[in-house]
Amino acid sequence: MDRGVSESVSAFLDMGGYAAFVWPSYAITALVLVGMLVASLRWLRSTEAALAALKAERGAKGGAGEAAGEA
């Protein structure tokens, strides 16, 4: 990397002396929003898996209640 580029990168990262306030703001926001999203997606996957397991179990018993389970 040539000197001019590395200087402008470090100037960008320095945020005019406010790096200690700007970057934590963005980092915490990313962390909380991604964390909430991942937790929600995982919860959905686990309920989908649990419901599929329940249906498979009922299917093995003859599948008599299958239609009712859809209601």
Partner: peptide, 9 residues
């Protein structure tokens, strides 16, 4: 200064 960028989050 640059601290205003906190506004965008």
């Amino acid at each position: 200064g640059e601290s205003v960028r906190i506004m965008y989050v």
